[in-house]
Amino acid sequence: MVLGAAPVLRGVDLTVADGEAVALMGGNGSGKSTLIKSLLGIVPIDSGEARLFGADVTGARRAVPWSRIGYVPQRVGVGAGVPATALEVVASGLTGHRRLRPGAGARRACLDALEQVGLADRARESVAIFSGGQQQRVLIARALVRRPRLLLLDEPLSGVDQVSKEAMARILTQLQADGTTLLIVLHELGELAPLLDRAVVLRQGRIVHDGSPPLPAPGHDAPDHEHLHPHGDAPSAVPTAPDLHGKPQ
């Protein structure tokens, strides 16, 4: 994947290799979400190009292998509007290019995806009554049901309870072990630090760091700083939880 430049982003040149786990970091307004969205063709690019699996996103959108891509957007007010069950939301992951209706076995696939995020027994409840973390997990299930080779997540940990954070870290670790490419917008590495290969830091639309995940800003890692996630015990912190992912195929 190669990305050129948009007005919010300038001179951004980023390539993510197959199987890599990359964090996209930076402050508010640094262009992290815009980068992900322009990569998916949601935000138009003024000049430059964005390629997914070698296909130009700004060109013929038909040429992009959308079925291999999973997107988990930033969670915004899911509450209002028409009620929808978790199952219905996840099933919307099964439509896409050339697929206006989910095919056979859709229900099974959706329940499996919900099982993966630990919400299978709440499949028929309205997502409006879910907690922030649970809603985020439903959105992850909606992306996972596509069995993506590339998963893009926008701030998956923000506004999410600890249980959901840990569940997400387990899921993403498993996905990475299975060879899924991960591009994750993050405010802080937190639970996801152990699984990341690389971090890209954006500031005012430019890449200011591209390499190993950066150390926390001063004061952030002080002993009295209240953190509910473990610190410092990096590789051993990789959860050895039972296989939540199930076996692909």
């Binding site: 249980v163 802080e188 500031r203 200011v208």
Partner: peptide, 16 residues
Amino acid sequence: ADRLHDVEDDLQLRGA
């Protein structure tokens, strides 16, 4: 297993 204890966000900007 879904006991909720929402954690506040750390909105500290990271340096390069």
